[in-house]
């Protein structure tokens, strides 16, 4: 964690408190509690059906909490959803923006949707940060690769300039170079003070970038791991916890 933002570290931007969620009467999250502070990347790991996406959906207000609560920047999502959403930028898995628009037009549209206005220079600066080539920016997104589309979506998250980022399987389908670039970008945003919750099933990727990792299994948070000062979370340790049989 960047020392300049350590003072923010103890101020949780995202909080799940004894979160319990039901879907079609079935309990899919059971008493999940964790928090993410400003300047921190929190990786939420788990296998299929562990409850990762449901946790994210609870923060975004797409599923209600049966009990417990989720808090975003001090706002209870259950009672002040619109304000909570304004405080977050969300990067969905396989972000599909509008294919009939180019990168700038897409960003302009989604920024207006968020009631924001950015200049063309600011948009180009964000696209520079995600390393989207200048020659690609005027092309319709239908000609983009998945990685390029992801970069545009990340640029949107940057331009939203919220204190909180929610990332859903952000590196899914990206090539190794793009993944490395993405991790560098996420790390940079966290170092700038943003609280980042990254849902993933990629153990290695999570250990590369996260300050803390929570492991979900069967809707329960079964373990948490924390990076040592100046270091990274040990991949082997997390892998053993994530998949005990495979590790054995």
């Amino acid at each position: 964690m960047n020392p300049s933002v350590t003072s923010l570290a103890h101020m949780p931007k995202l909080q799940a408190e004894q979160l319990r969620v039901l879907r079609s009467g079935k309990e899919v999250l059971s008493g999940v509690s964790f928090n993410v502070a400003g300047g921190e990347v929190y990786g939420l790991l788990g296998g299929n059906g562990a409850g990762k996406s449901t946790t994210l959906a609870a923060f975004l207000g797409f599923v209600p909490a049966a009990s417990g609560r989720v808090v975003v920047d001090g706002l209870d999502v259950g009672s002040d959803l619109a304000a909570a959403r304004r405080a977050m930028a969300y990067l969905p898995e396989a972000a599909s923006l509008y294919e009939h628009l180019d990168a700038r037009e897409n960003l302009d549209y989604f920024l207006q949707l968020a009631d924001m206005r950015c200049s063309a220079d600011e948009i180009d600066l964000a696209l520079d940060r995600v390393s989207l080539g200048a020659e690609a920016r005027g092309l319709k997104l239908r000609s983009y690769s998945k990685g390029m589309r992801q970069k545009v979506a990340i640029a949107l998250a940057i331009l939203r300039d919220t204190g909180i980022l929610l990332l859903d399987e952000p590196t899914s389908g990206l090539d190794p170079t793009a993944i490395d670039e993405f991790h560098g970008l996420v790390r940079g945003l966290a170092d700038a003070g943003k609280a980042i919750l990254m849902v993933t099933h990629d153990v290695y990727g999570a250990c590369q970038v996260a300050d803390r990792i929570g492991l979900l299994r069967g809707g329960q948070l079964v373990a948490q791991f924390e990076a040592p000062p100046g270091g990274r979370i040990d991949t082997e340790t997390v892998h053993r916890a994530f998949s005990p049989r495979a590790a054995a």
Binding site: A82, R85, R86, P92, A94, S96, Y98, L113, A114, L156
Partner: peptide, 15 residues
């Protein structure tokens, strides 16, 4: 198209 949640999460105010 995978945009619904992004649209709703991004829309300011009443989605």
């Amino acid at each position: 198209a995978g945009r619904h949640d992004l649209l709703v999460a991004t829309a300011a105010g009443d989605s």
